[in-house]
Amino acid sequence: METPSREFQRRVLIVSSHPLFGLGLRRLLDSRPQTDVVVIGIVESVSEAMGAIDHLRPDLIIVDYDDETVSREEVLMRFIEGGERLRIVLLSLEEDHNDIVIYDRRTLLTSKIDDWLAEWPADMGSTR
């Protein structure tokens, strides 16, 4: 049986082959005063992410969309068009993407992460 704190824990998976970005983002999330967010893993490719999704069951996936080693085609095919209900945030310098919400990494602040988490439905963690 899960404890209440575990029930509301937000499980975040980061997809980036740049350790400074991935580890830096994890540190930012870990250092939040709220303890409801845990970074469950950092993976370097979409295929690794697919394995991690099965094993680790993340609630939110943050993708370094400008990372050359992260195939955009694969991101779209497996994350966006796939059958699973996944909450994805793509971070990019590019602004023009038709149907996907992309955050401009130049202006993105840690407070925005709080917004994502605040927007998160309370039952998201248990019903994905």
Partner: peptide, 12 residues
């Protein structure tokens, strides 16, 4: 100029 990257790097 990437605020999130900079914040993460400063943290590390």
């Amino acid at each position: 100029d990437h605020a999130l990257f900079r914040a993460g790097l400063v943290g590390l």
